[in-house]
């Protein structure tokens, strides 16, 4: 069963990579990058259970936290055009 799940995740990962490569707009690529991070987490979890090491699930959780950082940075870059924007200058909390 885990073999089946791993195969499905691999196929989905390949499709997401194709979207990240072809993606006509930047937002396609951002979303594909985030999705690939999620699929890496799923792959970790399913491979861990498949090879009898369920403790990889903890590493997968840490990856989930890391996946957030780069996506947040990219989106902040788009919203403000700057990573360290001045709150008082923009006039919003």
């Amino acid at each position: 069963m885990f073999v089946l799940a791993t195969s499905a995740v691999l196929i989905a990962l390949t499709l997401a990579v194709v979207r990240a490569i072809r993606g006509p707009t930047v937002f396609d690529r951002v979303l594909a990058g985030n999705t690939i991070g999620t699929f890496a987490i799923l792959l970790l979890a399913s491979v861990g259970f498949m090879t009898g090491r369920p403790e990889w699930l903890d590493i997968a959780l840490t990856y989930g936290l890391l996946n957030l950082i780069s996506t947040l940075a990219v989106l902040k870059f788009f919203r403000h055009g700057d990573l360290a924007y001045d709150i008082e200058e923009d006039g919003e909390p």
Binding site: V17, A20, I21, G23, V26, R29, V30, A32, G33, I36, G37, A40, L43, L44, V47, W56, I59, Y63, N67, S70, V74
Partner: peptide
């Protein structure tokens, strides 16, 4: 040619490389 796409793709590369290293048992 688009530098922004390169930034995104290097992030994707790192996630895939991390998966490879995990499968190789180098956690």
């Amino acid at each position: 040619r688009s530098l922004f796409a390169v930034v995104i793709l290097t992030g994707v590369y790192s996630f895939l490389m991390a998966s490879v290293l995990i499968v190789l048992d180098a956690v």
